[in-house]
Design a protein around this nucleic acid. Structure first.
Lengths: 151, 151
DNA sequence: GTGCTTGCAAACGTTTTGCAGACTC
DNA sequence: GAGTCTGCAAAACGTTTGCAAGCAC
């Protein structure tokens, strides 16, 4: 698979917290306490988190921060290319830093999620493009199946 | 994490309306007006439909049928292997008859959905199994990307 | 008659929105 | 001071559930 041609901005690589804050200021946004805190949490535990989980982490430090604020910030950060969300199954979407695109294999039995590099999808991507004129971007939805221990 | 007790059953091939009615009776279910009507609708327009769409189609004939009845019947029919649902993007799940398994390519721009045969995924499936010990079942979630006209 | 199925209403979990006040720049 | 961002409450959305009445067998 080629470049992850995601929506808008030619997705810049991952970055540091400070770089993100600059990015926010650059496009006219304000660096507020809850925004900075959310980013600290994200950089501190860069896995997949639902909005609810992120809220819990943020609220452990600053209980005042409201769930809807997390939703709005997460949306904003996604617009900036800092975050991505994926649907790893039923239930809430999960957000993660855009560090090296990867796809998720999620076990439909136990929910375990395995990350796989884009390279694995090169063949499928080529075929999809050739035969269906379709440019895949598998990051957004997980590929479901069964993991080794559930078979 | 919701327990997806579904699956298991070595999904029998598609069938006629009457076969499905027999199947329902076989396992002790009753053939009711709304159930038969839902099946008629499904066999008459065998595409992908959200529950809401199915309800509209059913209610065009029998307005009394309640949305929750469709939900319950669709769930039951999935248990019987007659239907499958997939998540083609954000928004509601879509149901379709289990006619020959296929995977969906969904354009994240215009929402168009393209059906692709399983054969296309053989290579990926083999790789996933070999390298990650993961048995993929891509039918449940769509592969997103951009279609020809949106690029 | 038994017990599966229905309509209804109400609740659910996730996400979005309108608003007045608070804050960043 | 202008304009962005926040907390809150409420609603929107798709889906599930408890219940009493209704229907298939």
């Amino acid at each position: 698979m080629t470049k992850s041609s995601r929506a808008a901005a030619a997705a810049p690589a991952p970055r540091s917290l400070d770089e993100v804050l600059d990015l926010i200021r650059d496009r006219g946004g304000r660096v507020t306490a809850s925004r900075r805190l959310l980013l600290e949490v994200l950089f501190a535990s860069p896995g997949h988190h639902s909005v609810e989980e992120l809220a819990k982490l943020v609220q452990a430090v600053e209980p005042e921060v409201h769930l809807s604020t997390i939703y709005r910030n997460v949306e904003e950060l996604e617009r900036l290319g800092v975050l991505e969300h994926s649907h790893l199954g039923h239930g809430p979407a999960t957000y993660h830093l855009t560090t090296g695109a990867h796809t998720h294999f999620v076990c439909e039995e136990c929910g375990t999620s395995i990350e796989a590099p884009d390279a694995l999808f090169e063949h499928l991507a080529a075929q999809a493009l050739e035969r269906y004129d379709f440019a895949i971007n598998p990051h957004h939805f997980a590929i479901v199946g069964r993991c080794a221990s559930c078979r």
